[in-house]
């Protein structure tokens, strides 16, 4: 099972802040994005287009090629704008 969190613009557009995903073989952050994009509409528009979507695995910044494991907390969000 993966816990997936969405922040900022993505949270608003998807209409959810978090969800649990299980029973899907996903190896990397890129796999997760691709799988979510198959939901269509806003999901494919945000995740399968040329828009930049950053990720964190267990509260550490990650890249598309990073591996994900059962029990991980994966966060997807637009580039950060703090400071």
């Amino acid at each position: 099972m993966l816990k997936v969190l969405y922040f900022a613009r993505l949270r608003e557009i998807f209409g959810i802040a978090s969800e649990e995903i299980s029973g899907v073989p996903l190896e990397t952050v890129a796999d997760l994005k691709e799988w979510l994009a198959h939901r269509g509409e806003v999901w494919s528009c945000e995740l399968a287009s040329d828009k930049v979507v950053r990720a964190a695995i267990n509260q550490e910044m990650a890249t598309d090629v990073d591996k994900i494991h059962d029990g991980d907390e994966i966060a997807l969000f637009p580039p950060v704008t703090g400071g």
Partner: peptide, 14 residues
């Protein structure tokens, strides 16, 4: 610290 924070700390402004 500011350069690092601007791209690595998970904050978003609306």
């Amino acid at each position: 610290i500011m350069d690092y924070l601007k791209t690595q700390a998970p904050f978003w402004k609306k």
